[in-house]
Design a protein around this nucleic acid. Structure first.
Lengths: 192, 192, 192, 192
DNA sequence: TATGAATGAGGTTTCATTCAT
DNA sequence: AATGAATGAAACCTCATTCAT
């Protein structure tokens, strides 16, 4: 899972440092935006600037890694809800939690957008399996919720992803909260 | 309205230059993102870099001016719909057109987010009257649509602004279109 | 002659600064080798680092400009000797002076090598007309010296350029002087 | 002869590694120039970067070792020709072969220049016995060639070394070959 | 007023060297 | 002894901003 570009497994301390750098990057980019300097990431991680570049040879690759990590976390969370008792609650709850995270971490929104339906070839390459994984897991939640009658039948996973990205953006930037989600959710429910 | 930083009215050619710079900035930032260089804006406008900084003393002030211009345009459009015959069509049509614009110009999304409900003091100072103007005009459209029974009564202008920003973002980044708006609009309609 | 990339003539002060930078670069690279830093050149020239990069957008382009300047100077010198009375003295004297210069400035040798007979397409593009100009001027000197019987008839300009480059290198690095040129010159004279 | 920096004799595998590193350095520096990274040498040698620095504690010491190895090889070759039948052919043949090698490996030229007549104290310390050895062996070839009447009597070993370095440079950089050597050799032959 | 050359802080990236494993 | 991750100084280059022309 965590292996060097040469294919060999990383040394234990290298793994630790890689994780420290990634965590620091996530936080710094969330707070300061993606234009924050790599040097600040290094400082926050408590490592030398050279260490950051050993693990992520360009700033872009570091940004990508942050996105991938976020997507993987979300996909895992969705995956865990696949067998929940109440399919509707699982679906809407997941949606709600993603948006809440986005309100705290701007990067989440960008990650969602990148993972979105019609990705560019570049973005697809960048996020690797993480984007498709999330879409698949979300698709499964959606399907079960539809079967349970909690979500209308004429919605597709692509539309849900787009709504998710949009609501996350709104939460992060325009200060939207529960109030706004109410309407979005009503739009997804079967018309009475 | 168009006056130099020193407060004096601008000479005719200075007014023309200011407009040229603004138009160029709008295009350059739309295409290249806000990290495009001021120099590129000057080149596109066909003026010297010094001229750009004479009219907009910092890059940030130039970005703000672009936002304000966009907001003013949207507010004017909304204003023009205030007396439309079909209040529901006016409201949803305006929403749709804003999102369509956003799909083409990323800056629109950012402008909407900045104009959003609970703006920071900084942003408020930056966008001046443009944000409130848009919110007021949109509020009027909303109210009339609600009176006409086209939009549910428990929505406020703040929520609409947030939805607008979110859907614009989704359109610009995640490739969402009409398909997604369908659900958002259904969420805003009165429950049958 | 000295014009900006955009084709317009440079402002007077810009011309002065360009010359200062070029002179500084010549000296710094001569003393410290081509791996000397661009910052040192800026310091020596008494300008900011940004100024160096405004005139020469990459370090490579600065190195090229130094080479070109050297080649142009040599070509001009050779050109001036075209009508000298004693064609043999003109030829050998020029050769000698070039080697003496090379002993002081390492860059001269590199310039000669770049200007040499079978240049790569890259180098040709880099040195522009400067290399061919020098070869042409040197060729003229050679021809007249051959007609005057001072140089053997079976030497071509390409061989002379190669000898020139080689002797310059020897002078600069291995400390060769007049003693060594004696033999090289004897090799170029008609066999008695 | 091959001992670690600490003076102790090396283990057999350490000797092998030292040789691997040296061979890799020779090739890498020949192809990429002396600014190639130490890391690339390590990669080519198939060892870790730490191993390179264990054997050659600075990059400069590695470069020196490459030079010394080249000089030793040339000195050995010259040594082997000391008793050749045709002293003139031996001398000129050796000269020719050195130049041919230099055309392929830039480092040869630098090695020759370093080994040249009036070395700096630094360079002398660096190349150790290798420079003097080559000069001595070349001097012997020269002397015998002079006794045989193949080379003029007024040339000294210092001048020959300088010519050798210069012609090697010309061969490596300016693409000179046999054509140019003809004239250099004629310059060394007795005037008829 | 308009121009664009000059400035220099700051960003990304490389690499010789050190040191824990 | 060998490894390769960590280090950080220093390189190249960009760009918002200032200022002489």
């Amino acid at each position: 899972m965590t292996s060097s570009p040469s294919g060999r497994p990383l040394r234990a301390d290298a793994v630790r440092n890689r994780a420290k750098v990634l965590a620091a990057a996530e936080e710094v980019f969330a707070v300061r935006g993606t234009s924050a300097s790599t040097e600040e990431v290094a400082r926050k991680a408590g490592v030398g600037i050279g260490t950051v570049f050993r693990h992520f040879p360009t700033k872009e690759s570091l940004l990508e890694a942050v996105l991938v990590a976020l997507l993987e976390r979300l996909a895992a969370e969705a995956e865990g809800l696949r067998t929940a008792d109440d399919a509707g609650a699982a679906f809407f709850g997941f949606f709600r939690r993603v948006v809440a995270q986005a309100a705290a971490k701007q990067a989440v929104t960008e990650a969602l957008a990148e993972a979105g339906v019609e990705m560019s070839a570049d973005a697809r390459a960048a996020t690797g399996r993480a984007g498709p994984d999330l879409r698949a897991a979300l698709g499964a939640l959606l399907e079960r919720a539809q079967e349970a009658g909690a979500v209308r039948a004429d919605v597709g996973p692509a539309e849900v992803m787009a709504l998710l990205a949009g609501m996350s953006y709104a939460a992060a930037r325009a200060g939207a909260h529960e109030d706004v989600l109410r309407f979005a959710f009503d739009g997804l429910r079967p018309r009475p």
